[in-house]
Amino acid sequence: MRPGLIGAVLGKEMRDLLSNRLLLGAVAFPALIFAAIPTGIVAFIEVNDLDPNQLGQIADYLRMFPDLPPKLAAQGFIVLNFMAYFLLIPAMVPMAIATQSVIGEKQARSLEPQLATPVEVSELIIGKAIASALPAIIATWLVFVLYGLVNGAIADPRLTNLVFSDTWLLAMLTLVPLICLLSVLLGILVSSRVNDARTAQQLGSFIVIPIIAIAIAGFFSGQPTFSLQQVIMGDLVVAVLIGLALVAGNWIFEREQILTRLG
């Protein structure tokens, strides 16, 4: 594995990505929306000084924050409850970039000249995977930090501590990159079967369904966010799915197969 060649592929992909404003918008926009909605609710509660007892069903959940005053507990619940949606960014964005990249190469027939160089297929794939995953990881981490700091500044520093909990720090450092990798792999696999990026992204968008289902299930089960054990379990499940994706797509690392399927 030669870092110089991976760096060359990564550099080219990043240049390509930076020149695509629409795709960059697609990276930044969902991340900001997922952060802005709960932050807006927190600010609304802060400004309007709502009585949390009037918040209906949520009032039942406030007992989960016995150390916090009711208003802050309501804000804490809102802040934590939306955090599962941060996992949608690493699920959606790398797939969008990977499919765009691979199908773009397919349409331009630019894979063959690259495969004709001394670069190893694994170096090419790793360069592309990092380039597809990096924007989502950076966007998720940036928004995560901003989310914690802004909500803490709006309401109370204790909200920052809720966001930057051990559970979510672990999720950011392990689950987010793993979901990104799975998303990239699925993006490449789907791209081998279809010829336009929109179809590939539509097929790939099924990856977000389990995450949304988990978030909704968490809400109805009265658990506002993941536990540490659930994050570790999530890491394991995603790792297994990555393994399955690699088995299904073992051709990804064969020059001839890439040329035949993607070239």
Binding site: G4, L5, A8, V9, G11, K12, R15, D16, S19, N20, A108, R109, S110, L111, E112, P113, Q114, A116, T117, P118, V119
Partner: peptide, 28 residues
């Protein structure tokens, strides 16, 4: 080996210089 493929297969978003620079790096 140098190869001119049937289709030029260039990276449209990159300039000519960037295209050549990229392949030069791949060739070491």
């Amino acid at each position: 080996t140098g190869i001119l493929t049937e289709s030029p297969g260039l990276h449209d978003k990159l300039t000519a210089r960037q295209n050549l620079g990229y392949y030069g790096r791949l060739y070491g």
